[in-house]
């Protein structure tokens, strides 16, 4: 049905998409996870309340989250050029992907950590646990199943953002879908790339679900 060259292109597209998604997810978590922890810990009912800092971070996160990704993508181009040296290709897309998804991840992490029963935190405090020990020995391990599920959601969101990168020549499946399926009306190409994207999403979701069930000891 497809020539060897086309298949090769799709193969490269898949790898580029996975590359962008995974690298961006890792970097976005490096930013988003501490931010999410900060939001929980400094909350007025948190274990180390710092209301002003909490407000400031909360507002920044909200502002970044309310900018549509396509606009962020374009707006960040000068910054991307400074960081990566180009605005084209998968590496260039990583920059807006990380900045666009880190605030989202911060909120995901925040809501996961807030699920931890306050009584358990109080028990840890009664044993003389410091805020730091509570974060690493109570909040994160107790919220692990929920954090894993949030991780799957975050990766899938980043994947769908990465497809939008097709409009600015970022590479990956998004670029193939737009260049061939959209601009050249090649419906079959459009369909194939969409199906592959669906399968990747399905794969991440399934993996996340499995890891969550395995990690959760509440049965």
């Amino acid at each position: 049905m497809f020539s060897k060259a086309v298949l090769e292109m799709i193969g490269v597209g898949i790898l580029e998409t996975l590359y962008m998604t995974i690298i961006s997810s890792i970097l976005a978590y490096i930013l988003g996870l501490p931010l999410g922890i900060l939001l929980v810990v400094t909350d007025k009912d948190g274990i180390a309340p710092l209301v002003i800092l909490n407000r400031i971070v909360g507002v920044i996160v909200n502002i970044l989250r309310s900018i549509p990704f396509v606009i962020l993508l374009v707006a960040l181009m000068p910054f991307t050029r400074i960081v990566v040296g180009t605005t084209l290709g998968p590496n260039a897309l990583v920059v807006p992907l990380v900045i666009g998804s880190a605030p989202y991840i911060a909120r995901l992490v925040e809501s996961s950590l807030k699920e931890v029963d306050h009584g358990i935190i109080e028990a840890a405090q009664s044993m003389g646990a410091s805020p730091r020990q509570i974060v690493f020995k109570v909040l994160i391990p107790e919220a692990m199943p929920s954090l894993i599920m949030g991780g799957a959601i975050a990766i899938i969101t980043i994947l769908s953002y990465s497809a939008m990168g097709g409009f600015v020549g970022a590479g990956g499946l998004g670029t193939i879908a737009i260049n061939y399926g959209y601009y050249r009306y090649q419906v079959d190409m459009m369909l194939v790339t969409v199906i592959i994207l669906v399968l990747i999403v399905q794969g991440f979701q399934e993996l996340g679900g499995r890891l969550m069930r395995r990690s959760d000891k509440r049965l």
């Binding site: 009584g119 358990i120 028990a123 009664s126 044993m127 109570v138 391990p141 107790e142 000891k217 509440r218």
Partner: peptide, 21 residues
Amino acid sequence: LLRVRQSMGMIFQQFNLLMQR
């Protein structure tokens, strides 16, 4: 204060055990 709390144990109505341990 954290040290002092280590010499006071506490138990609760809802047990408050770590569910993942």
